[in-house]
Design a protein around this nucleic acid. Structure first.
Length: 551
RNA sequence: GUGCCCGUAGCUCAAUCGGAUAGAGCGAUAGCCUUCUAAGCUAUAGGUUACAGGUUCGAUUCCUGUCGGGCAUACCA
């Protein structure tokens, strides 16, 4: 419908010799303003040097619309043109929704294109903590959105197995192992203090006994054991969250393939890097001219080890070379500044960095009884993601993390999330789905297998406010998905589903669906139920939560 | 100090490229279960959109400044 009206309005504008403006078509909040509204006349006012209301009249005179769709057109306010859609159109759409089922809402805007989305990418130095949850849930929902927009998608996990952090892990495990024989053996100042390190150390002790006590200079066993243990933990949590990556990309492989050295020499060759104080610097101040006080950044430390920037750039170049049409990175706000340097470096070597889109999300504070939950890596006072999922459930966690816009700070109310009651916003949505499912089960008992006949139902019987209102909201799902896709904002789906659930609950409350005495009306209303179920289910799929048949 | 994000109802947050009377949930108050799931529905109260300017037909949205919060300002990633 949106497309249809837009097209028609443009045609009319063309006839009035107004080209090159993009009229906005929106759904007004106020019902008396119609179902769709456009500001086309206001936008043309300057060009035509006429009163917007007068122009609006001219536009309408030049509009050729199908009466089956549009029942009334009005000019209002400063020059808005309001369109009233025929109720019958909405009702008719419900059958269409049922036919499309799991395809309803899917777009083709990115059909035939490929996208790579990289997220999670937690280094295997420990189990994931609750704060990772937002990142994980958001990435999952964005990945779903990309898929719905038509992309062929590759989900990727990049992990740093070459840097200091892995060494640190190895040292920590070694220290815990040795402490089992020598309780006074010192634990490294910057070591990982979590309980899990002791667990890993025990595994090593079980396998090797005391044979590795003198391996201060060869941490390989400890590193490998640590990495394996941590990855197992991480993957397990991801599995519980319903996430499976297609590819795990190791930072080390970039070194092994010589890509780091190649990159370094490329920068040198182009005179984009220089040596100072024993380190190699990248001329980021020149590469990022639009940023006022950009400083040059170190890419190889004076110790000879590259900083994270170099492998990060090499990694992105690798992805670009793999030929994706788009590359998505999901980062927390703590990485908000650094990716710009990485992109600048990539672009400086002639790669098309505009293909890379970075989604930044702000941090999370977990609230318990009105107070923030303290988390400290130093003291092992960590709220792990596994604990959170155990406390509130995977669905609830997923929902809460995606519920809010990513670029605003999130307060996660654990008590509210735990609440198995009407206070919990997840259940409001899932309950609508379960409720419909219950009615459909009932319908089967009363009418037998009704599915075929329902498609022939006499939907002209549906005309009260609740019925039309529900049908109306169901038809805009595709527009909502498109909007969410374009902005990479899955929370918009939740806001919308809330409206769907609201419309359904109201409909349910005022209209009995199943009535053995009135089969015709029952069937007509079952059409609405089926269609509402499809929309809820498809929406849940995108945000990544389950669609319960019973609650 | 500087850069990024944010400031909307008592609390947590929405608000379609700048649109019409700024909306939900929680909390508060008052109602609704002999009828398909009351995890529901209905109604009421609650706002100078942090503050001060600017841009224009029109600003929560864009620009400037002030105040307040988060993150980043490493040869950690």
């Amino acid at each position: 419908m949106t497309e249809y009206l837009k097209e028609k309005i443009k045609e009319a504008l063309h006839k009035l010799d107004v080209d090159g403006i993009e009229p906005v078509l929106e759904r007004p909040k106020e019902e008396s303003h119609g179902d769709y509204s456009t500001n086309a006349a206001m936008l043309s006012a300057k060009k035509l040097k006429k009163n917007p209301r007068e122009i609006a009249k001219n536009i309408i005179d030049n509009l050729q619309l199908d009466e089956k769709y549009i029942s009334k057109i009005e000019i209002a306010g400063a020059g808005f043109i309001n369109f009233f859609v025929s109720p019958g159109y909405y009702i008719e759409q419900a059958k269409d929704i049922i036919n499309k089922r799991s395809e309803y809402g899917k777009l083709e805007i990115n059909k035939g294109k490929s996208v790579n989305i990289e997220w999670v990418s937690v280094n295997p130095t420990g189990p994931m903590h609750a704060g990772h949850g937002r990142h994980i849930a958001l990435g999952k929902a964005v990945a779903n959105l990309l898929k719905w927009s038509g992309y062929t998608i590759t989900k990727e996990y990049y992990y740093n197995d070459a840097g200091k952090q892995m060494e640190n892990l190895a040292k920590s495990v070694y220290a815990r192992y040795r402490q089992m024989f020598e309780p006074d053996y010192p634990f490294p100042e910057t070591g990982y203090v979590g309980e899990y390190i002791i667990e890993i150390a025990k595994i090593i002790k079980d396998e090797y006994g005391d044979k590795l006590l003198n391996s201060e200079n060869d941490f390989l066993v400890f590193k490998t054991a640590g990495e394996n243990w941590c990855f197992k933990s991480i993957r397990n949590t991801l599995r519980v969250m319903g996430i499976e990556h297609d590819k795990f990309f190791s930072e080390r492989s970039l070194y092994d393939d010589g890509k780091i050295e190649k990159l370094l020499s490329d920068f040198k060759q182009r005179n984009l890097s220089y040596e100072k104080d024993g380190a190699v610097w990248l001329k980021t101040s020149e590469l990022m001219k639009d940023k006022k006080d950009a400083e040059d950044k170190v890419i190889v430390k004076s110790t000879g080890e590259p900083t994270y920037r170099l492998p990060d750039m090499a990694y992105h170049i690798d992805k670009l070379n793999r030929g994706y049409d788009a590359i998505i990175d999901v980062f927390g706000a703590d990485h908000g500044d650094t990716y710009k340097e990485v992109l600048a470096g990539v672009a400086a070597l002639g790669y098309d960095a505009s293909k890379i889109r970075v989604i930044i999300h702000q941090m999370v504070t977990f609230m318990q009884e009105g107070k923030p939950v303290k988390m400290s890596k130093r003291s092992d006072n960590v709220y792990y993601l596994d604990d959170l999922i155990e406390d509130v459930g995977a669905d609830v966690a997923q929902f809460f993390f995606v519920m809010r816009s990513a670029n605003t700070h999130l307060d996660f109310d654990i008590a509210l999330a735990k609440e198995q009651s009407d206070k919990n916003p997840v259940f409001y949505l899932q309950y609508a789905h379960a409720r419909i499912s219950g009615i459909l089960r009932n319908a089967k008992e009363v009418f037998g297998d009704y599915s075929k006949d329902v498609m022939n139902a006499n939907t002209s019987l549906l005309k009260n406010e609740d019925e039309v209102g529900l049908a109306k909201i169901l038809t805009v799902f595709t527009d909502v998905v498109r909007n969410a896709v374009e902005t990479y904002e899955p929370h918009k789906i939740i806001t919308y589903l809330n409206e769907v659930a609201e419309a359904y609950h109201r409909f349910y409350h005022n209209n009995r669906v199943i009535n053995a005495e009135d089969k015709e009306l029952s069937y007509a209303r079952l059409v609405l139920c089926e269609a509402a179920k499809v929309v809820l289910k498809n929406g849940f799929d995108i945000i990544g939560i389950s669609a319960p048949e019973r609650m």
